[in-house]
Design a protein around this nucleic acid. Structure first.
Length: 364
DNA sequence: CATCAGTAGATCG
DNA sequence: CTTAACTGATCTACTGATGG
């Protein structure tokens, strides 16, 4: 007997950062607001992190250079990100989701999934009512709008929440999944970005329907086994990944833009140390002892290179961490395309919970 | 072939 | 008139080596 179909909700805050800035600057009304990550290299170098809908109408999108956004919208309000502010609001908002369903997964600062199946006993009507109530609650209590999607899987729920924005509400019960997905562009699928979209287009695959009628063998031979299968099943709306309450990150990293391009390690080592200390706090400081250390560099011509080292024992002190980074950066500067414009550090391969407890007990 | 180490590539906001 | 502008964080696929 097949498992009963699940009912998953996906909540996506609309233009979250820009909406928060608008709330914090009521005099801006519906003026275009562009929230930016300033790299500090020049007064306006950096990229757009979030754009209000009036700014989006002018062609401004997340990820584009600030200079480009300024030329599209010279009169917009350009503000730096206030991450603490968004993060604390995000926590307040999504904690209200707990209680709506049995499990809540905060997927990012502005997105969360909720598994409603058991709470509504499989009733779509009840699930829809519950999520509409949640949507109004967020609007009322936070003056922020969100879009909501409902589907039998996380995959469909996420696409549904993106179907109509801002303030959208889209419910796709199991029997409507093919009709809903078929006309959509392949770009709507998770994991399909510009590169995959272009590769699919070269096979004349532009919609989910076209993807769905493509053989598994064709997809695997163009995209490899893992990605090919993922595309095959995604086009059918098939996704049995569970809503997970707490996902442990597999790695932590810091990457930053240098004030000046670097042709050697020495001029940037102090910056590495201060980022290393912050990353040490974020990982080992929270009991996540790491067995892998990596560094990365992005050259002034945007080429990327990296070095990684696996440790036989977890890194046990910030001093050792600095020393490992020194070693890796020396190697990187010998092999990379110089000079470097941006550099970064990364830790990963965290020890298991049991090892963590033993090691942290040992270290006091 | 299952796993690991190291690297580049891709995605998302 | 056309072009270029360009962060920060995370995850995953691919490749080659190694051991059962």
């Amino acid at each position: 007997m097949p498992l009963p179909s699940r009912i998953i909700g996906h909540v996506d805050m609309d233009a979250f950062f820009a909406s928060v800035e608008r709330m914090d600057h009521p005099e801006w009304r519906d003026d275009p607001i562009i929230v930016c990550v300033y790299s500090g290299r020049t007064p306006d170098s950096g990229v757009v992190s979030s754009a209000s809908y009036t700014a989006r109408q002018l062609g401004i999108k997340a990820g584009m250079p600030i200079a480009g956004a300024q030329s599209l919208c010279p009169a917009g309000h350009f503000v730096p990100v206030h991450h603490e502010r968004y993060s604390s609001l995000s926590g307040d908002i999504f904690s209200k989701l707990v209680g709506v369903g049995s499990i809540v997964e905060v997927a990012s600062i502005d997105e969360a999934y909720v598994d409603l199946s058991s709470r509504v006993h499989g009733s779509w009507a009840e699930a829809e009512g519950t999520m509409r109530d949640f949507q109004s609650l967020i609007q009322k209590e936070f003056s922020l709008s969100c879009s909501v999607g409902l589907g039998p899987s996380k995959l469909v729920a996420k696409i549904a929440s993106d179907f109509k924005k801002p303030g959208g509400f889209t419910s796709v019960p199991p029997e409507e999944v093919p009709r809903f997905l078929d006309p959509l562009p392949v770009k709507c699928l998770m994991g399909v970005g510009p590169k995959t979209e272009e590769e699919l287009a070269s096979h004349s695959i532009r919609t989910v329907a076209e993807l769905r009628t493509t053989g598994l063998d064709v997809l695997v031979s163009s995209f490899g086994s893992a990605k090919g299968q993922h595309l095959f099943f995604s086009s059918r709306g098939m996704d049995d990944s569970p809503v997970i309450a707490h996902r442990e990150p597999k790695q932590h990293s810091r990457i930053w833009t240098l004030a000046q391009d670097a042709g050697s390690y020495d001029p940037v080592s102090l910056g590495v140390y201060s980022n290393a200390d912050a990353l040490w706090e974020e990982s080992a400081g929270n009991g996540q002892f790491f067995n892998q250390v990596g560094v990365v560099g992005i050259s002034s011509r945007m080429g990327q290179s990296s070095k990684t080292k696996s440790l036989s024992l977890p890194c046990s002190s910030p001093e050792q961490f600095r020393a490992e980074l020194d070693e890796l950066f020396r190697l990187l500067f010998e092999s990379a395309d110089l000079p470097l414009r941006r550099i970064g550090i990364r830790v990963g391969s965290f020890s298991s919970a049991i090892k963590q407890r033993r090691l942290s007990d040992f270290l006091g």
